[in-house]
């Protein structure tokens, strides 16, 4: 393992010689303030290619802010972010990441299929290719029968699945998800968790996933990153060594309970529970 500092040097010195182990996302000493409020304080985080990293922490601890800094939707006040070996701005204009927000943010005026086509349209794909790709993605999230529906005719969970299909449509290297299932009931959430893992296994995309739910974080992730409240900092990073493929049986394993407890204890130790 290279330390963050060494990796940073490699990237800066770098003509684009990309080491195999280079993280897909490298956050180095990032601080972000909003006026008086310090949302992020000296946050460092590496996300290895192909991993599934969950950010968990109490409301207002800066999870969304961190995600938005990675996505170049916000500038860090200080520190450095490298995404896919580039600046976040470059990664955004190169369309290296897909984003799923807490709300599905679908366009009411487009059908489900044309919502999934949106990024492909922006990238200048021709109609037939776009359509084929959108149908493929809709099959992946099991919404083939709803291709011609409008978002308003779909349930919240279905809308979120459309948003995931849309984010994956152009095969981004990185998927950034901000509490995508936060507004859903427990049953739908567990079903979509399974679906998401399935998609992740098939696409081998790197995922950064924000959640409030400890069971969800443990079930999905390769690593759970526990954050402290304002100013947001990384408290601890817990590798999740549960076997794969994970399924409903995973939630009954002793190790699963141990890990859930470990995350909970970390939050409690910081006085957060």
């Amino acid at each position: 393992m290279t330390s963050p500092e060494e990796a940073a040097v490699t990237v800066e010195a770098g003509p684009p010689v990309v080491a195999a182990a280079e993280p897909t996302v490298a956050v180095r000493h990032v601080t972000r303030t909003f006026g008086e409020v310090t949302a992020l304080s000296d946050v460092s985080l590496d996300v290895a290619p192909g991993s599934f990293v969950s950010l968990i922490g109490p409301s207002g601890c800066g999870k969304s802010t961190l995600l938005r800094v990675i996505a170049d939707l916000l500038e860090p006040s200080s520190g450095e972010v490298v995404v896919a070996g580039k600046t976040p701005h470059r990664a955004r204009t190169d369309r290296d990441y897909g984003m799923v927000f807490q709300k599905a943010t679908l366009f009411d005026w487009r059908t489900v299929r044309r919502n999934v086509e949106l990024p492909l349209e922006l990238m200048g794909w021709d109609r037939t290719r776009r359509r084929a790709r959108a149908d493929e993605m809709l099959a992946l999230v099991e919404l083939t029968d709803f291709a011609k529906h409008r978002p308003a005719q779909l349930s919240g969970g279905m809308q979120q699945r459309v948003a995931i299909a849309r984010a994956l449509a152009f095969s981004p290297k990185l998927l950034l998800m901000d509490e995508p299932f936060g507004a859903l009931d427990e049953i739908t959430r567990e079903r979509l968790n399974l679906e998401l893992l399935d998609i992740w296994t098939k696409t081998r995309t790197t995922v950064v996933f924000v959640t409030h739910s400890i069971p969800e974080a443990v079930f999905l992730s390769t690593d759970v990153v526990v954050m402290s409240p304002r100013p947001g900092r990384v408290l601890r990073r817990i590798p999740v060594d549960l076997p794969r493929p994970r399924d409903t049986g995973t939630r009954e394993l002793d190790r699963y309970f141990e890990l859930v407890t470990e995350v909970r204890e970390t939050l409690r130790g910081a006085g957060l529970l």
Binding site: L73, R92, F101, T105, F107, W109, L118, E121, L122
Partner: peptide
């Protein structure tokens, strides 16, 4: 909405396309 604008920004959509595909239909 701001979230729709942010979505278009995440796609690095140029101003012209933001107008044609988001602002105008909205």
């Amino acid at each position: 909405s701001d979230s729709h604008r942010e979505l278009m920004r995440s796609y690095a959509a140029p101003q012209r396309q933001v107008f044609a595909k988001l602002l105008l239909p909205a």
